[in-house]
């Protein structure tokens, strides 16, 4: 059965009151990005199938909350992204991720290049108002070249999707329900049992310091890291001035 490919047509909608022309089939996030408007996100990464789990990209579509990464554009919709209410929701999502895991930025190899931290900076978060949950989580250093620190995992599934769809390996998946949900490896129970290779795209997919190459920590001095001076998403908002793009670690 082959689907009929329809020619793309133009769709016009508004984003925070600004009229945006998009292509049908685009998501709200893609359409916004195409015109230089950044919508914060964590679980979404360009090129991967949208997943809609982190909820950082929550916007309202005709007043109803929806994730921008999974919602297709449609003619005439009114999308709101930068209201005080939506900012407050996003901020709370980021705080939830901080208190759910154990994020010790002061000694994390990813610090300065971490998207969770960068969103905290961008949103001006100085301390979560939520209580820390201090879960006990393991570190898997069994692989010769790559480690998983589950303390930092935010369950975004970027490694899951990248390993499956880009590397063709299915080295990662989630098991467990609710607050017991956690990243597992496949097959076997340790990272060294998988076919993961240090050059896999899945290793770079991690937005935080949960999956790291060994012996490569702290390579970039403080002051030259991705988000030391420029907020995450700035490249989208000011496409001319900046060349730094997220997802391209130095």
């Amino acid at each position: 059965m082959s689907e009929v490919i329809l020619p793309t047509s133009e769709v016009i909608f508004t984003l925070d009151g600004v009229t945006v022309t998009a292509q049908s089939g685009q998501t709200v996030m893609e359409a916004a990005e195409a015109v230089g408007i950044y919508i914060p996100r964590l679980c979404h990464k360009e090129g991967l199938e949208p997943y809609g789990s982190c909820r950082v990209c929550t916007v309202t579509v005709n007043g109803r909350p929806a994730s921008a990464c999974t919602t297709p554009v449609a003619d005439g919709i009114a999308v709101e992204s930068e209201s005080d209410q939506i900012r407050a929701w996003r901020r709370t999502v980021i705080e939830m991720l901080f208190v759910e895991g154990n994020h010790f930025c002061m000694f994390c190899e990813k610090s300065g290049n971490c998207e969770l931290q960068a969103l905290g900076y961008r949103m001006g978060i100085v301390a979560p108002r939520l209580p820390y949950l201090w879960p006990k989580r393991p570190v898997d250093a069994s692989h010769p070249d790559v480690l998983i620190d589950h303390n930092r995992c935010i369950l975004c599934a970027r490694c899951v999707r990248t390993s499956r769809d880009v590397d063709g390996k299915q080295a990662f998946a989630f098991v467990g329900r609710g607050s017991r949900r956690h990243l597992a490896v496949n097959p076997g129970s340790r990272l060294c049992d998988t076919k993961l290779d240090v050059t896999d795209a899945a290793v770079d997919a991690c937005p935080v310091g949960a999956i790291l190459r060994k012996r490569r920590g702290f390579e970039t001095p403080i002051g030259r890291r991705l988000y030391d001076h420029v907020p995450i998403g700035t490249g989208v908002e000011q496409p001319v001035e900046l060349t730094i793009r997220e997802g391209s670690p130095s």
Partner: peptide
């Protein structure tokens, strides 16, 4: 007390 971007750091 409003810290500019460069002054909010967790490390």
């Amino acid at each position: 007390v409003e810290l500019p971007y460069q002054l909010i750091k967790y490390d």
